[in-house]
Amino acid sequence: MMDALTSNFLLAQFSRWERLGDGFRRSGRPLEFSDLVPYIVALLVLGGITAAFVTYRRRNDLGRPCTDSQKLFRELCLAHDLDRSAQKLLGQLAEAFHLAQPSEVFVRPRVFSPEQLPEHLQDEAARIAELRQRLF
């Protein structure tokens, strides 16, 4: 019974089987590089998307062991619910005081002192004071 069913199924697909080995026959049309281009492009796109996804995940995976000062800074900013402009201002402060890494601003309240602010940040004194209030 099973043998009969199997043979019927194979016979039903037989028309496609006939074209299977066309590319390998001397008598058939030889395989061109242009034939593979769409496949290669598709693979590259897929690889790019995967790499981008992995990089994105790695960048935002705070539970992953690493030594990344920027990531730590983002982690702290996220914990304190700081928006992008506040993060930028804290980064500027760290740079102005030549801190080893931007996260140090979270443990150095003196960098927020208005009298110690560098000239180019004097305009931001009010926001910096507000940030100090928020972080300490």
Partner: peptide
Amino acid sequence: TPIELTFDVLANSRNESANEVLLAGF
């Protein structure tokens, strides 16, 4: 408090950079 929150993040972070930040505080 904000300071407690900062140290809470630093205590639990698996980022080794937290050690330098803690030394700065210490």
